[in-house]
């Protein structure tokens, strides 16, 4: 009885869109907070963006996340073309690995910043920076957990309508995080160069 009908799938996808719009506001407000803190007052005589960020790792992180979106897209295509759970799972595992790699690099960046004394307790701007970037990081971590759950579901149920529906929402979520990261990359990191 649990097999989803198309209407149920449609409704779940729709609800998920609404959730993401709400989530988008959350990010928007963190961006706005970040913007207001990007001042002399916000720096509080502490480290400033131009002194802290190194573009190398950030560019790699961006690339990793973009590629992970591509690999997720390949998982979706494999699902659509009925390529069997093995192929789908393979692409999901690659996506997961890229997601975890991104998180590892981000944590390494944070540790480096902290070593230079740039901790969130140092200034309003750093609070806003860590607030915004870790909010995205937490979302990526949640996405990774979700991928693991979907790998398990794929193993247990196979590519049923239920599983496909959940994968489509996970895909939406994963691509959404990509878009948010582009925003962070432009506003936070490229903005620091300007």
């Amino acid at each position: 009885m649990s097999a989803m009908t198309h209407t149920a799938e449609d409704r779940a996808l729709y609800g998920f869109w609404v959730f993401m719009m709400s989530d988008l506001i959350l990010f928007g407000l963190m961006f706005a907070t970040y913007g207001t803190m990007l001042t002399t007052w916000g720096f509080a005589s502490g480290p400033e963006p131009s002194e802290l960020f190194s573009m190398g790792p950030v560019a790699i992180e961006t690339a990793i996340l973009l590629v992970s979106s591509l690999t997720f897209g390949l998982a979706t295509l494999a699902l659509k073309h009925g390529q069997g759970r093995g192929v789908i799972a393979l692409w999901l595992v690659i996506t997961l690995a890229l997601g975890l790699g991104f998180l590892a690099m981000e944590l390494r960046d944070f540790a480096e910043m902290a070593a230079e004394g740039a901790v969130p307790q140092r200034s309003g701007w750093l609070s806003a920076f860590f607030g915004l970037v870790s909010l995205h990081g937490l979302h990526v971590a949640a996405g990774c957990v979700w991928i693991m759950v979907m790998l398990a579901q794929l193993a247990v149920f196979g590519p049923t309508l239920d599983v496909a529906s959940r994968l489509s929402r996970l895909g939406l979520f994963w691509h959404f995080l990509d878009v948010i990261w582009i925003g962070i990359f432009s506003v936070v990191y490229l903005g620091a160069l300007a």
């Binding site: 502490g46 969130p120 307790q121 140092r122 200034s123 309003g124 607030g131």
Partner: peptide, 27 residues
């Protein structure tokens, strides 16, 4: 969402020493 943000950031200020809304250090 603005309420979620406002309360979470205030909690970070209180629990973790962040400076979103404090008097000093750029809050």
């Amino acid at each position: 969402p603005p309420l979620t943000v406002a309360t979470s950031l205030l909690a970070l200020d209180r629990m973790a020493g962040f400076h979103f809304f404090t008097n000093d250090l750029g809050g």
